[in-house]
Computed example of a mutant assay.
Amino acid sequence: MTQQSIYKTIQKTISGIATSDGAGVSLTRIIGQPALPRLDPFLMLDFFGSDNPGEYIEGFPPHPHRGFQTVTYMLAGQMRHKDSVGNEGLIKSGGIQWMNAGKGIIHEEMPEQKHGLLKGFQLWVNLPAKDKLSKPNYQDIPPEQVPEVKVDDAKIKILAGNIDDVEGPVKTTAIAPTFLDVCLAKGNTTVPLKAGDTSFIYVYEGSLEVQAGHPSSGQTLNSGQLAVLSTQGEKLYVSSTKGTKFILVSGKPINEPVVQYGPFVMNTQKEIVDAFNDYQNGTLTD
């Protein structure tokens, strides 16, 4: 392997589109839009951020899911969740919830606050066929359980995955995910990633350059842009002249057919019809 092929490179860049979901929550859809419908194993990525309660206060009233996982990571504010079988919890600023919908769950996510800044991400992660009808469960992780490491000029919060033998709190799932929140001051950092995984960066503050091992190879990413990274390479080298914040996410591709109808994600059309009928009949969560 040559020196340059050790490093991840940018394969595609896109910007999110403004939309709304739930009961009118304003957000930016990044994955799950026409320019990037899916990125196996990732189905959707939304970024929400507003200090106007009118844009988020109605939240996400009860709604169903089947066949995938939802990940909610809060950067600011608090989100309370409840479900159809009595689970309840509070996702605080800096905390993360990794929910396996599996065979079926009906839940709601409502802002805990009535004013102030609400900011965060929701990521949808597909499940392989063998796990689509698995038992639903939650991993609710408070901010104090999220470790942070310093790598070169960056502070990295490890939500899932492993950096320098420090393990993130999200338990291993089928895709063996890495989910990092990186704050890079002026300077650079090198982050290890698995060759063969699907991986992406989303910049939510500032700008950075992704470099293939030397400064002349840099490609700039600005706030609001997502970069799909190459599957080849085992390191990500980034630099910033003014500072930046971004999430870095990766996971094993599933390489299976995807049939999606709103909140149901299965492998065949028949399975989608079954999910819809189960929901209509009140047996989705049985």
Rank of each mutant, 00 (worst) to 15 (best):
G54C: 03
A23E: 09
H81Y: 14
D40G: 09
N100H: 14
V71H: 09
R29W: 01
G95M: 11
N100R: 15
I91V: 14
K8R: 15
I31N: 06
L123V: 06
H65D: 00
I30C: 05
P64R: 00
R38A: 02
Q78W: 08
E88S: 14
D51H: 11
F68K: 03
K103F: 09
P53G: 10
L45A: 07
G116K: 12
R80C: 01
L39D: 08
P41A: 02
G59Y: 02
Y56D: 06
P111L: 02
D21W: 00
E108F: 02
P53C: 09
F121L: 04
S15F: 08
K92M: 08
G59L: 03
P53F: 00
G94D: 09
L45I: 09
W98S: 03
F42G: 07
I105W: 03
K82G: 07
W124N: 08
L39C: 04
S50E: 12
G67R: 13
T70G: 08
I57E: 11
D40N: 11
D46E: 11
L45S: 12
F68V: 00
S93Y: 03
V25L: 13
P41F: 06
K103Q: 13
P64Y: 02
Q69H: 13
A35Q: 14
I91G: 05
H115C: 05
F47V: 10
G54L: 01
M110V: 06
P41G: 07
K119D: 10
H63L: 01
L90A: 06
E58V: 01
P34F: 02
P62T: 01
G49V: 05
E109I: 00
N87L: 03
K103N: 03
I105E: 13
I14N: 13
G24H: 09
A18M: 09
V71M: 07
A35E: 14
M110S: 07
E55Y: 07
G104T: 02
L39M: 11
P61E: 07
S15T: 14
V85N: 15
P53W: 01
I106T: 14
G104L: 03
P111H: 10
L43G: 07
M99D: 10
G120S: 04
F60K: 09
K114E: 05
G59D: 03
G89K: 08
D51V: 01
P34W: 06
L117T: 11
V85H: 15
D40W: 03
